[in-house]
Amino acid sequence: MKTPSSPRFRYTAVLSAAAALAALLIGASQIGVDGKPATDATTTTTVPAAPSAPEASLFAGLAQRGGALGSAQAPVTLVEYADLQCPYCAQWSRDTLPMLVENYVKTGKLRIVFRGLAFIGPDSDKALRTVISAGERDHLWDVVHGLYLNQGPENTGWVTDELVRELAAGVQGLDGDELINARWDDAVASEIERAAQAAQTAGVNGTPAFQVGPTGGSLELVQVDSLGPEGIVPAIEAALAR
């Protein structure tokens, strides 16, 4: 086969082909982010639809696997025990979680694990089953944060199917009806049981409650006297310093 001999033609051909190839890769990369299948391990949070939406970038680019947020190789793990109807849990999620995500999870220092409890009432159970269903699709944290931002008065029926659909619609790869239908899966019930047993073993007697320690090692229950970052950060820093 003859090769192009004109220098200008050669450069034009090379540049055009390279630009086309790069554009193809960049386009494919975007499909990988925006159209991620539900079972994929990394989060692709966009803004959940109304009513209230978490910050679009809070979990962007972070791995979610089941109830875990962040790298599995992070040196320190923080376990959060929470009831999705607990107002203090919602306050912690609003006031402290974004700071932890930005400063510790995104930097690979911390992995956060959500263990949900449902002791306040029927809406707790419905909300918990919804987020565990989302966790099975590796989007638990998107839905947890969205529910906290839209938390209603206890047991008033605020965890509506409409709210679940609206939150799911804001997360690429998540289908609200799928979440609602999966609430009664055996796997969801098993996960609720596991979290309840873990809370009992850890000695949790209120929410939010936290355990901190080396990833894969022994975690210690931390008594927090503040729902702001100053309540939990010292325990995280101490675990990192070990």
């Binding site: 990988g32 391990a41 990394t42 989060t43 680019g61 972070l62 790298s71 992070a74 930097t107 690979g108």
Partner: peptide, 8 residues
């Protein structure tokens, strides 16, 4: 780790 575990 953050980059390698990201959606990208």
């Amino acid at each position: 780790e953050t980059v390698q575990s990201s959606a990208y």
